[in-house]
Amino acid sequence: METTLLRAGFRRAIASSYNPARRRVLLLHASRRTYASPSEPSGPIQAARPINFTSDTNQFARSTTNSNKNTSQDQDYDRLLHRVRIVPASPSYFTATPRYTDDLLYLSSLYRKYQLLPRLAPGTEPRVAWKTLAEYRTETGEPVRQKGYTIMLSLLKRLNKIHTALLPVEVQRALQRYKRRIQPFFDRAKPIEIDELGRARAVGRRKACHAVVFLVEGEGECLINGRSLTEYFGRLHDRESAVWPLKATQRLDKYNVWAVAKGGGTTGQAEAITLGLAKALLAHEPDLKEALRRAGCVTRDPRRVERKKAGKLKARKMPAWVKR
């Protein structure tokens, strides 16, 4: 014991002559060596006492066995809930978009499960209008990105290609959830009927023009707003445009035409009569649809005149001084 004290004293004396940083280190080592704990245990090692939980669980078990003590059951259940940690139902709970992640994982599992089922030929699958990204964001209340929603739509389109006769019920329910409430592909135009007088009534539009056309079998007469074709349209191009469906199908002398045109200019009215006349002609002869389509009479031209902008000479032409 004396040797140890002398050794410690000499070390402290030597350390006092060194710089302060090394002095602290030496003192630390000296203190560790001087006051070190014994290497051998002084007694047997004892384990910690077991955690003594309250008797709420035992009371809860006893109360559940006895159905007559409803009040005590509620009290014990409330005590038990205070010590229970609530676990999220979904593993995606801590992500930024848990509902989207769950939906994507569910669709992926469905595709892996039924990817070997027979598929429809390309182009024969049912046409479906899916929900837009804005609608899906409103439904889930999450900031879903466009790229992520595109991945989901690709899975939906793959599931939609499964053969209709073999489509599982769970896939049908999953697809129904992402469809729009109103499917535009199911809408069909009301067919034009021929009345008791043999007339077919159709409506045509072009730009700001509106034309109602009546077509009946006859000798080739044409009246527009109570005037003949040559009187109403001064330009030859407008006259040919008005009766172009009959001329393209070589039926100028087989039908009579009456039309009421409003709005726009003469060219727009002539093209509106073209569309209305083609629709009325299809009511009489539906087999002419391909010929009228090739002639460009069935579809409406959506183009409109681009109006002049402020600061420009025309719709797009800039003044000369700007170019300089």
Rank of each mutant, 00 (worst) to 15 (best):
T140W: 10
K157V: 13
R49L: 13
I86W: 06
D253L: 13
T164I: 15
T150M: 11
L80F: 07
H29I: 12
P168W: 04
E40H: 01
L275Y: 01
E125R: 06
L277E: 04
L133C: 00
S154V: 05
E170Y: 02
T267N: 04
L110Q: 04
H29Y: 12
N68T: 14
R293D: 12
E290F: 03
Y149S: 06
R12H: 08
A320F: 05
G263P: 01
L156Q: 02
G148T: 05
V87G: 01
Y178D: 02
A47D: 13
D187M: 12
L197N: 13
R227W: 08
Q172F: 02
R227Q: 14
A134E: 15
K289E: 15
Q269L: 02
S72Q: 11
R293L: 14
E135I: 03
Q172W: 00
K254I: 14
E217H: 08
G9W: 09
F60Q: 11
V84E: 06
P126C: 05
K247S: 12
R300L: 12
R304V: 15
A259T: 10
S16Q: 14
Q269H: 02
G220C: 08
I224E: 01
R227C: 09
K190Q: 11
L166T: 11
L155M: 13
T299D: 15
Y35P: 00
L281I: 01
Y93H: 09
R180G: 05
F53M: 05
G220I: 13
G218E: 11
L292A: 00
F233W: 05
L105S: 08
K262Q: 15
V305K: 06
S17G: 03
Y35Q: 07
L282Y: 02
A202G: 00
T65M: 13
D287A: 14
T140D: 03
I224K: 01
F10T: 10
G218V: 08
A13R: 13
K308H: 03
V128H: 02
A30M: 14
K157Q: 13
H163V: 04
C297K: 01
P38E: 15
E193N: 06
Y77A: 15
Q59I: 14
E231Q: 08
K131G: 01
N225R: 07
M1F: 07
P20A: 10
A291Q: 10
G226Q: 09
D287K: 15
V257Y: 01
E135R: 03
P319N: 04
W321P: 00
D74H: 08
T57D: 11
H29G: 09
P143Y: 01
G226W: 05
M152T: 04
A121G: 02
K314N: 10
Q250R: 13
E285V: 09
A283Q: 04
P168I: 09
L27P: 00
T3P: 00
L110T: 04
L117G: 03
S37H: 06
